[in-house]
Amino acid sequence: MSEGFLAAAALLPDRLRDAALALPETDRGRAEEIRLRAGREPAVLLPEGERVICRGLKAGTRDMSTVLERATCSSVHAAEHELRRGFVSARGGVRVGVCGTLADGERGGMRMPSSVCIRVPRQIRGAGAAAIAKLTCPSVSVLALSPPGGGKTTFLRELVRTVSDCGTRVSLCDERAEVAAVWEGQPQFDVGRCTDVLTGAPKADAAMLLLRAMNPQVIALDEITAGQDIEAIEAAANCGVRVYATAHAAGLDELCRRPLYRQLMELHAFDVVVVISGAGECRRYEVEYL
């Protein structure tokens, strides 16, 4: 049985876990997420769409509190900072997205969760291997592009792991704990033997801290979404450090149409853009030199 699915299902209340584990093996192996919504039947997200886990079995807010309790080892208060940003990392690389009511605006904690999305962890070794081989010899700064859910994070993880295992010091700014999924100080995904991971800090602060503290040869950042992220890339590039980053876009043209990313491209901080398209086994990695 898929270890990732087992780790994800372990967070469910007993009656829902039993139902999830009773799914056919093929579905368990392909499941990307387990979703609970208050008053609705729990579902698994498969590549072709959502499928109800068990008819007539409904999830309640108490079930979602149990998921959070299990994900945080009975310490929801310790994950408050993460929860305010809508997710919490759990054992085995599982990431739990939470939706509910934020008490007292941004300063309060998440109360009454109404939806929970348990992401099934999966490290796809060898993803984009042919493209990565072109990028590591000689080593270059890389920007990976794809639409949301298109495999950017998986590609970045593999790129980081490959160069790190070759002896390059990589500092990874893992703001949302998606790339390395650090849990109790230890990455739950293999990100290479020479990788230092900083989790939870905004990318701009994290990049400066890592440049000062860890003497990296490469800085990796997932999902450039704000002006401060671009400043972090500029700072890293100015220090002579290679940069690996990802951004939401279907291609270079779409990227350059957006003012934020136009600003990014004007920095000339990247040597190569990798455009990821397709899904599953049909995923394609096109390398474009700038």
């Binding site: 509190s65 309790e69 009975s74 929801v76 208060h77 408050e80 929860l83 309060g108 904690g109």
Partner: peptide, 10 residues
């Protein structure tokens, strides 16, 4: 309630 709520509630 232990371990189920934010720090203030706890």
């Amino acid at each position: 309630s232990l371990g189920r709520y934010d720090a203030a509630s706890q």
